[in-house]
C-alpha cells in the first residue's frame, strides 16, 4: 500500500485527471465575457505595482531590468500561490465526488496543477512582451527554465498536500493559506533579489531565509532568464531545493496516511 502502490492507480485514472482539469478550466471562464484575458490581469497588476516600487528603491538597475526581474519572479510566485491555494482547497471542494465513488484521491490535487499551469503559460505572454521592450538577450540557460517551473509546482503541491489533508478536519485552512501566501511573497526574492535580502539580513538569519523552498525556484528561474549572477550561492540554492523535495515526499506521505478516512471526517 502507500504512495507507490497508488502510482499505478493514478496512471489507470489518467482520463479522470485530464477531465477534472478540463472541467475546472472550462467552468472558470464560462459566462465571463473577457474569458481567458482574466488570466493576464492579476499578474499584470502585481507586476506594474511591484515593478514600480522596485525600480524606485533599487535604482542601481535600469527600470526595464527591474520590471523584468519582478515580472519573472512574480509569475513564478503566482504559479506557486495558485497551486498552493488550489491544492489546499481541492479535497474539500470535491468531497461530493469521492464520497460517492472510489478513485485515488491524489488525482484531485494533481488535476488542479494542470489548470494552474495553463494559466501560467498564458501569463508568460507578459514576460515575452517585456523581454522585447527591454531588448534583453536570451541566454542558452533558458532551456533549463521548465525545470524551475517544475520545482515551483513541486513546492505548491507538497506544501498544499499538508493543508489539503488538514483542511478535511479543520476548515481554518482556507483562512490561513491566503495569509501565508501574502507573507511568503515578502520573504521570497520576488520584489528584490536574494542578494538584496541577504546583504541586509543579519548572518544568523541567512539559513532561515534560504529554507524557503521558493528561493531556489525563483533564483533558478532568474538564472535561466538572465544568466550568471542571479543565483546568490550554490549552498543556499541547494538547501532550498532540498527543502522542496522534503516537503514533496513528506506531504505525499502525510496525505496518504489519512486519505482513506477523508470520507468519515469531511
Amino acid at each position: 500500500m502507500g504512495s507507490f502502490f497508488s502510482l499505478k492507480e493514478v496512471v489507470r485514472y489518467k482520463t479522470l485527471l485530464s477531465n477534472l482539469a478540463r472541467r475546472d478550466f472550462l467552468v472558470r471562464y464560462k459566462q465571463a465575457f473577457a474569458g481567458i484575458i482574466w488570466a493576464l490581469v492579476k499578474p499584470l497588476v502585481s507586476i506594474l505595482v511591484f515593478g514600480y516600487i522596485a525600480s524606485k528603491i533599487n535604482s542601481g538597475e535600469s527600470t526595464a531590468r527591474n520590471f523584468l526581474y519582478v515580472a519573472s519572479a512574480m509569475l513564478l510566485w503566482q504559479l506557486f500561490s495558485n497551486v498552493f491555494n488550489e491544492v489546499s482547497n481541492s479535497i474539500v471542494g470535491n468531497a461530493n465526488l469521492f464520497s460517492k465513488v472510489y478513485f485515488p484521491k491524489i488525482i484531485i490535487p494533481l488535476s488542479t496543477i494542470l489548470v494552474c499551469l495553463v494559466d501560467f503559460v498564458i501569463s508568460l505572454l507578459i514576460l515575452i512582451v517585456l523581454f522585447i521592450i527591454a531588448g534583453e538577450p536570451v541566454h542558452w540557460q533558458i532551456v533549463l527554465a521548465p525545470l524551475f517551473v517544475l520545482l515551483t509546482l513541486i513546492n505548491g503541491f507538497g506544501i498544499g498536500l499538508y493543508f489539503a489533508t488538514i483542511n478535511v478536519k479543520y476548515r481554518d485552512v482556507k483562512f490561513i493559506v491566503p495569509v501565508l501566501v501574502q507573507f511568503g511573497m515578502y520573504v521570497s526574492p520576488v520584489i528584490f533579489s536574494t542578494a538584496y535580502y541577504l546583504e541586509r539580513l543579519p548572518q544568523w538569519l541567512h539559513w532561515l531565509f534560504c529554507l524557503n523552498p521558493m528561493v531556489g525556484a525563483i533564483d533558478g528561474f532568474k538564472y535561466c532568464l538572465f544568466g550568471g549572477e542571479a543565483i546568490y550561492n550554490p549552498q543556499t540554492f541547494a538547501l532550498s531545493v532540498g527543502v522542496s523535495f522534503l516537503f514533496l515526499f513528506t506531504g505525499i506521505k502525510y496525505f496518504f496516511k489519512f486519505e482513506r478516512s477523508f470520507v468519515d471526517y469531511i
Partner: peptide
C-alpha cells in the same frame, strides 16, 4: 455549466472509464 457531451466524459471518467 458543462454540456451533456462534456458531462458524459467527466462522469464516465469518475466512474473509472478510460
Amino acid at each position: 455549466d458543462l454540456s451533456g457531451r462534456e458531462n458524459i466524459y467527466l462522469n464516465g471518467s469518475i466512474l473509472g472509464m478510460s
